[in-house]
Design a protein around this nucleic acid. Structure first.
Lengths: 142, 142
DNA sequence: CTAGGTGCAAAAGGTTTGCGGTTAA
DNA sequence: TTAACCGCAAACCTTTTGCACCTAG
């Protein structure tokens, strides 16, 4: 429930860089996303956060998530029109949604492949962001 | 506003394959999506469809779009939590959202690249669908 | 004839906003 | 001290649903 020193530094630096305030709620929500990297929705984060902080509101959860995304501490993950999910993995990666279990898995992507994808674009297109989402099924037991 | 013979055949075959009824509304909505391949939202399609068919309802537009997607005549395109857009291009391709103009561009993808992406997945993952979305800006005049 | 489709209005589901009170810096 | 943030409730926007009527096959 406490941020490790490494993440505490990351968190402090990110907020200070954007001159945002350091609040209990923001830190708590960040710790919940780091605790179990299962790509929870805002509502799941709300439920988990109330265990240790019963007075937090859903609006605050949404506000904190927005702040954490803008500070680049976490990323949003969207599949179709399902609820937005949140991911603390900042490396370039794709997501795989298993339709059988509902679980979302991170899939690391080599830089070379991302470069190849960018090279498919016309010359005058400047990509700032890429999102790559697979869906299907997997046979493993998780 | 009329389907070309090629698309008429495509439309007829797709509906018959799923034993779905052939209705004025479905054909009209399909023709609107083919007419201007600018990835319109349901609401934009609703507005355009009322020009020639003033009595159509938004619920029917949503129902027809669902049918056309299930019949594989069109595809849905989702960027973040924006309204779903609809695309009649059935070849494997990615989308590029220009943040300056709001336009969405189709980007053809070589099969080899898609195969390489699938190869980044663990062995037991069976992808059924891939969505690749770029966002950024482009300097062209469209 | 009748299962499937349409049109309307109401509801649902996720997210955002306005506002009065609280708090970090 | 005070701008930023929180908590609450209401609003918002897109999409779905229930139901009575209609129509393709």
């Amino acid at each position: 429930m406490e941020l490790t020193p490494r993440y505490k530094t990351l968190y402090n630096d990110a907020l200070e860089k954007s001159s945002l305030r350091h609040t209990k709620q923001r830190e708590h929500i960040f710790s919940i996303i780091l605790e179990k990297k299962d790509h929870p929705t805002a509502d799941e984060i709300f439920t988990r956060s109330r265990e240790k902080m019963p007075s937090i509101s859903l609006a605050t959860v949404y506000n904190c998530l927005e702040t954490l995304v803008e500070s680049s501490l976490i990323r949003q993950v969207n599949f179709e029109r399902e609820s937005t999910r949140y991911c603390p993995n900042l490396r370039p990666h794709a997501h795989f949604l298993c339709k059988r279990t509902g679980a979302i898995h991170d899939v690391d992507l080599p830089d070379s492949l991302i470069k190849q994808l960018e090279e498919t674009l016309p010359e005058n297109f400047n990509p700032e962001h890429i999102e790559i989402n697979f869906s299907g099924s997997n046979n493993s037991n998780d």
